[in-house]
Design a protein around this nucleic acid. Structure first.
Lengths: 137, 137
DNA sequence: TATAGACCTTCCACCAACTGGAAGGTCAAG
DNA sequence: CTTGACCTTCCAGTTGGTGGAAGGTCTATA
């Protein structure tokens, strides 16, 4: 299978597949013409990578997961541990974004959004940290 | 004021302040020794940038916000529009992360996490997209 | 057989928003 | 006069790719 077929079947861009080879996640054979030649195993690995990436695992997580995936005597605890750490990162990110959202949606609500220059959003950004928590509503 | 003082007073790393100068967000004067020399206005701008960045605005957003901040005849609608677009990006990111969280926490719950190799997390990652939505619980 | 167009190859540069570190100049205190 | 805390510039690396140029290959059709 050429890279274009693999790209179509996994949904990954060909560029990304080449990149994954570059960083050692897959190692397709080469045909006489120099073209990459992928087998079913390679295809599955790439689909696995695509799915793991879509769940937000980092490339290094993926490397670990792939290794466990191929190790038939793995302990599921090792997989679970990677997943749990990733889950914690997701939690942290969601909290951070939720806090930003809270603050910003409040400010947006307060802003008239008309032709006048007065703007609570800019006021907040310009205020020093100390005076920021004074609730005005 | 030298860069170190500004760093202490704004909470921004000196490296970041130099970077902001590089990309044209601030333009401190220079002393005879070549050191950057910051005035109060520069300090305020940097604090403004730090606050905007902490709310997740991109550097280009910040550039726009800073311009509006300095333009005393601005329309608050322009500020609100930048903020609203950013809010939409935050919303999208939260949704994406929440979906990842949902899927992953479900899988983590299902995984025994012991010494045995059988692992629902790896099973999910390895499954093709078609067979993934079959609920097992 | 020529040629068009769809493949494939490598390599280099770029994105955001910094961060780390090396090599070297400056300044104040003891 | 030296020590140590500053400051300077410049280069490279981070994450996870993406875009594009220059060029080789394959297949179908005229």
């Amino acid at each position: 299978m050429n890279i274009g077929d693999v790209a179509r079947r996994t949904g990954l861009p060909a560029k990304t597949i080449r990149y994954y080879e570059d960083i050692g996640l897959v190692a397709p054979r080469r045909g006489a013409n120099g073209y990459r030649s992928f087998g079913e195993a390679e295809l599955h690995k790439l689909a696995f990578l695509g799915r793991a990436r879509s769940l937000g695992f980092t490339i290094e997580d993926c490397r670990g997961l792939l290794e466990l995936y191929e190790d038939k005597s793995r302990a599921s605890a090792d997989v679970k541990s990677i997943a749990r750490e990733h889950l914690a990162r997701i939690d942290a990110k969601i909290s951070e974004l939720t806090e930003m959202h809270r603050t910003l949606s409040h400010l947006v609500q307060e802003c008239a959004g008309d032709g006048r220059p007065d703007c609570p959003i800019l006021n907040d950004l310009a205020a020093d940290a100390g005076s920021r928590d004074e609730r005005t509503d």
